[in-house]
């Protein structure tokens, strides 16, 4: 079993503090699919600017941090464009139909003891695990 518990916990606490600040400061739920979906479907001017600022921070901080970490640890995304397109479409469609993703249902929902957040999280983890098993069986690896 592999685990990088120290950085996992440190990064996790930062994510939780970010979500707590967004809630207590701006009164908003830090759900990335909701923020992106709201921008696509159109939102009020002020809310739109808030969402764009959030996205700017989310994209720019890792851009800066990557120069301080080994390139090999940043990502291992597959080179199979068919898988990437199918995965992207499913994630986009699924998070908007189910009204949340890992940040909204997972971080914000579970911490509120919301039955919807807890059930959605269990379901998407189960679906993801089945997909990884299927990938392994069909392609002999990921």
């Amino acid at each position: 079993m592999n685990v990088d518990w120290f950085w996992g916990l440190t990064g996790g606490l930062m994510i939780g503090c970010a979500a707590a600040l967004y809630l207590l400061g701006n009164g908003r739920i830090m759900g990335v699919s909701g923020i992106l979906g709201g921008l696509i479907e159109g939102s009020a001017r002020n809310e739109m600017r808030e969402r764009l600022m959030f996205l700017a921070g989310l994209i720019c901080m890792p851009m800066i941090l990557q120069f301080f970490s080994a390139p090999s640890v940043n990502t291992h995304i597959t080179s199979n464009l068919g898988l990437i397109i199918a995965g992207g479409l499913l994630v986009g469609l699924g998070t908007r139909i189910g009204n949340g993703c890992t940040s909204g249902h997972g971080v914000c929902g579970i911490s509120r003891l919301s039955p919807r957040g807890i059930v959605a999280t269990l379901v998407y983890i189960a679906a993801g695990a089945l997909m990884v098993v299927a990938l392994r069986a069909l392609a002999g690896g990921i």
Partner: peptide, 20 residues
């Protein structure tokens, strides 16, 4: 909620990326 979570989870497992 359930259908969306199933679709999202499938895509998440396929590539290893969620929106954030």
């Amino acid at each position: 909620l359930i259908l969306g979570a199933v679709l999202f989870g499938a895509g998440w497992g396929l590539v290893g990326l969620c929106p954030g």
